[in-house]
Amino acid sequence: MEVEKHHQKNNFFVKWFLNNRFSIVLLNILLFFLIIWVFNQISFVLNPFWTFFNAILPPVLVASIQYYLMDPVVDWMEKKLKVPRIITIILLFVIVLGGLIWIINTLIPIIQHQTDSLIKNWPAYWQDAQRGFEKMIHDPRLNGVRSGINQVISDAQTKMFKTGQDSFNLALSNLSSAVNVITMIFMTLLTAPFVLFFMLKDGHRLNPYVTKFAPQKLQPSFSSLLSDINGAVASYIRGQITVAFWVGVMFAIGYSVIGLNYGITLAVLAGVLNMIPYFGTFIAFIPAIILGLISSPMMLVKVLIVFAIEQTLEGRVISPLVMGNKMNMNPVTTILLLIGASAVAGLWGVIFAIPVYAVIKIIVTRLFNYYRKISTLYDEISESDDANLKSKE
């Protein structure tokens, strides 16, 4: 009798705790937050590692972006034309150096000239805009709301002045931080080429090397996981940079055709900001609208037409050809992810949200599939799947 009661208690424990999905999910969540709490308690131990990581991150990040752009060329030259990797890497470095020299000698002087001209002429543009706005608010049809508009303008000017003064004071108080930033940029530019060289030379050996540390029976799946992560990150970086390049080219051509002042500078700005998914192009479009509005109503219409053509070509031709659906993300998911990432980590969160999400998604999917395979909780699902497969056959 006692044995039977003990058996029933064991069955109850197994049924409601060991083989209960809800209990296991709660236990995993508890362990996850327990691990976070433990790491938070020993954060002082991890601070040196975090400082070290922050120091090496910029050159590694810059080198990684260039690696994903150059590595397909190096692999293709080695496999198809039997050209040694070092020779291809040196040729690519020479080409990149030549491109940088061309940019420094050709593109940067144009941008500098247009930027200097914009700064010089901005007071005149601002006065024209003020006169146009004052003319608009003195329209007899706005008599009822004129006082409210004047109050809004006064408040905006006060806030802008206060913000500018605070920014100036903050800049003066953080000169040491500015020196640190300049030092970091210099060290990044100095060390990134060396990191890139060895990444291109030996990067294809990283997967087999890391896989050796996994258990023998897990090495094939672990190697496949690393390949999937590498492919997702590579697709995103190559796609974003390629699309950003063509966005800059399309805006440069469009602004040059309509004769918009500072078109090259605005086009370069649009290409750079296009690295921010969904929102970057619209942010870069704001100064173009302002300059078009200041120039003339007809110029504003031309700017809007250029923007419409660029968005159509980017959305219907360039992005589908370059990006396709490689990230396998719903647009709503992407937008919500970007909004949340911007609230958590600002600009860096927006830039890195999608690739980080893609990596986490791959890892979680692999872990779930592995758990589903070894767990008895999904036996009934597996059996039904088998039955469906057999019925289809």
Score class of each variant (00 low, 15 high):
30 L>T: 09
33 F>N: 03
35 I>H: 01
46 L>P: 02
21 R>M: 01
7 H>I: 14
23 S>Q: 01
23 S>I: 06
30 L>N: 00
42 I>V: 14
32 F>P: 00
29 I>G: 00
14 V>W: 13
21 R>W: 01
45 V>P: 03
52 F>V: 11
19 N>F: 05
46 L>T: 04
32 F>G: 04
18 L>N: 11
6 H>S: 11
26 L>M: 12
11 N>A: 10
24 I>K: 02
49 F>C: 04
10 N>S: 13
10 N>K: 11
19 N>C: 04
15 K>L: 13
38 V>C: 03
27 L>A: 10
52 F>N: 02
40 N>G: 11
9 K>R: 15
17 F>G: 02
32 F>I: 12
13 F>S: 05
22 F>W: 03
14 V>H: 06
40 N>T: 13
18 L>A: 11
36 I>H: 03
29 I>K: 06
16 W>F: 11
17 F>M: 12
7 H>T: 15
9 K>H: 12
45 V>E: 02
40 N>Q: 12
35 I>T: 15
14 V>M: 11
29 I>D: 03
7 H>N: 09
24 I>Q: 00
8 Q>G: 14
20 N>E: 05
53 F>V: 12
22 F>M: 13
28 N>M: 09
27 L>P: 05
8 Q>T: 14
35 I>L: 09
21 R>I: 01
8 Q>M: 12
34 L>S: 15
53 F>D: 13
14 V>F: 14
28 N>G: 03
44 F>N: 08
7 H>E: 15
40 N>E: 02
26 L>E: 09
18 L>V: 09
37 W>R: 15
45 V>R: 08
27 L>H: 01
31 L>T: 08
15 K>M: 12
45 V>Y: 04
37 W>P: 05
42 I>W: 13
18 L>C: 05
41 Q>F: 00
22 F>T: 14
25 V>I: 06
32 F>M: 05
16 W>A: 02
45 V>L: 12
53 F>Y: 14
13 F>T: 06
45 V>S: 08
40 N>C: 06
